[in-house]
Amino acid sequence: MNSTILLIQLLNGVQFGVLLFLIAAGLTLVFGVMGFINLAHGVQYMIGAYLTFMYYSWTNHFLAALALGLVTALVLGLLLEELIFRHLYTRDHLDQVLATFGIILFVNELVKVIWGPGTLTLPTPEILSGSIQLTENLKYPVYRLALIAIGLFVALCLYVIVTKTRVGMLIRAGASDSETVNALGVNISRLFMIVFGFGAMLAGLAGALAAPIFTIEPGMGDNLLIVAFVVIIIGGIGSIRGAFIAALLVGVLDTLGRTIATDAMGLIFDASAANQIGPSIASMLIYLFMATILFFKPQGLFPAQGGAR
């Protein structure tokens, strides 16, 4: 293990964390403000990737495909909200889990029917292809750096929106106490719609940005959804700041864990045992991390008071 590999893995971890943040941001707001468990949020991520793929094959232009993809993801999100989700806000968590589980089954299958069960790939956009020399012996792909930059930029924008604008004030109020927002006479269903559409679009953005790095396949959002849930639980439900910090922590922990775990186990066990135990320890790390956090802070790192019902 040399420091170059470590540095690369650290950057990869940050990049994974940024993707997680884009997914978790919408999830934590929808959850915090509306008390709504949206298992179908991972599906929005997948839709973002597939839409960008589709528009790219039509336009052959990455940015155009990205823009069209985002708009479509937003529209689909609003449509889902209008048709299904708004009828579930007042239901208990169990009904929400069930209905959104049904949506997952449906969309995963639909994607399979339209684009086939196999994996697809999206080429890296030309202007962002290639690598740059970061240090003497460290080259890192430009696209991944761009992804980190975009993620940090979105995080900054979100932070400004949530802390400095009226909508943001309402969102924060909603996350800590939705009764108050109701009492303020605000059109709460419009606020919900904005938050929901925005969250869907951010997840779509994550999917679109991830498409050139990971493969596009049916169900690609399912496991990431669970990780995003881990992020918002660690960060504290309803907290954007918590989601950001937890996303980076989880991203780095997971990525570095996979690199280091086998070597670390090699110090204790013999090589073959280490090769077996290492990867499983690495996969478990984030869940162990979450269980530990919950043990000491049952409300997560940055609890938004009374956020979740």
Partner: peptide
């Protein structure tokens, strides 16, 4: 079949 079962679930919940 999931194209039918998924929406069925949603409808039952609603």
């Amino acid at each position: 079949w999931r194209l039918i079962f998924g929406p069925l679930l949603v409808l039952i919940v609603l």
